[in-house]
Design a protein around this nucleic acid. Structure first.
Lengths: 199, 199
DNA sequence: GTCTATAAGGAGATAGAC
DNA sequence: GTCTATCTCCTTATAGAC
């Protein structure tokens, strides 16, 4: 644990670690405090309750999901070469999804979304929807410039993103699925998809 | 709760209800007993520990996932009309997945797979893999009879099943996604997919 | 096979000293 | 802002009567 890091951030970090592996009920305030280096009583100076920590983590998970900032100008130059663009952006996405923090947030949401006594009202859909929207923009541009066959950009985005997201899920939940297999699978998906949209 | 139902089954049923909404740590043995109509002490006549109940539920979830029995003879008669066959079998799948028990099992596995202190070692992959295998058999038959364009049956199965599974997930985790929208989405997926494999 | 009673400890949260 | 000490309730699990 970084020494200079503020106590509040340390608490959130350890709460994320515990909640995303043991569930909300399984991660105790006591253990969160211990890992963060404070007594549980000191923890209540920063958060009014255990539930308050979770709410903030869920909000962070929402705020830190995929955004348009991944679509850099450098990347957009390849838009006229659709297949290359798709390959490059999928790489960017998987690197983003492979970050420890991103994995923890996804696990947290997958667990939390079913908790009946939760006040968060979160769903894994919000994470998928963000990604679909971005690809929707991409495909709508490709359609505008007639780089690909005619079609509905929203449907193309769903058809492209759903399998990617499933691969992300499989990679997250099974340590037997390694990075190499993931890359192979995504390449094979891109090839299949590209054949269905190329002119 | 059915009166004639054996105590052991009632315990498992209520444990499934609680674990699949509150997580393993969140569902207490006391509450399971209360809902099942026995004291928690009586419960220990049937299961050696809380963990033992969970292990059995996970095993049930594995055993009750999609199987070849869904491929009835009546259905197989439509194999020569691939698009109709696909539509009909997707209907069968969604009806199966929409059963309360199936929803609970999926929620249970989605939660349980990340629990670091779990002994179950389960992953959502096992549920997906079963479905992919069945569709792999279907597409390999369609390829044999040359009903569809040349391709790899495994890849076709993955490309077809992944979006279906995502729809199942979205439906499970968001009560705003209703049955009608689900049907629309699956139709649109079938159309897209069919266009990519028809001769 | 189910009960009452209870053990032994963990949970979330608070009071008040420093 | 963090600590010690403590409250109250809930947790899994067991012992032994019926």
């Amino acid at each position: 644990m970084a020494k200079g890091q503020k106590t509040r951030d340390r608490i959130k970090e350890e709460a994320l670690n515990l909640f995303s592996t043991l569930g909300f009920a399984g991660g105790s305030v006591r253990d969160i405090g211990k890992e963060a280096g404070v007594r549980e009583s000191a923890l209540y100076n920063y958060f009014s309750s255990k539930e308050a920590i979770m709410s903030e983590l869920i909000q962070d998970a929402k705020d830190n999901s995929v955004g348009l900032e991944l679509l850099t100008d450098e990347l957009l130059e390849y838009l006229s070469k659709p297949k290359i663009f798709i390959e490059k952006f999928v790489d960017v996405l998987f690197v983003h999804w492979n970050k420890d923090e991103q994995k923890k947030y996804l696990r947290l949401i997958l667990i939390e979304q079913f908790r009946s006594d939760s006040s968060a009202g979160v769903s894994v859909n919000i994470l998928i929807e963000e990604t679909i929207k971005i690809w929707g923009i991409i495909f709508s541009q490709m359609l505008n410039y007639k780089f690909i066959k005619r079609g509905d950009s929203r449907i193309l985005a769903e058809e492209f993103v759903y399998p990617l997201f499933m691969m992300r899920l499989q990679y997250l939940s099974n340590n037997k699925v390694d990075w190499k297999i993931l890359k192979q699978k995504s390449e094979s998906h891109i090839n299949y998809f590209w054949n269905s949209i190329k002119k």
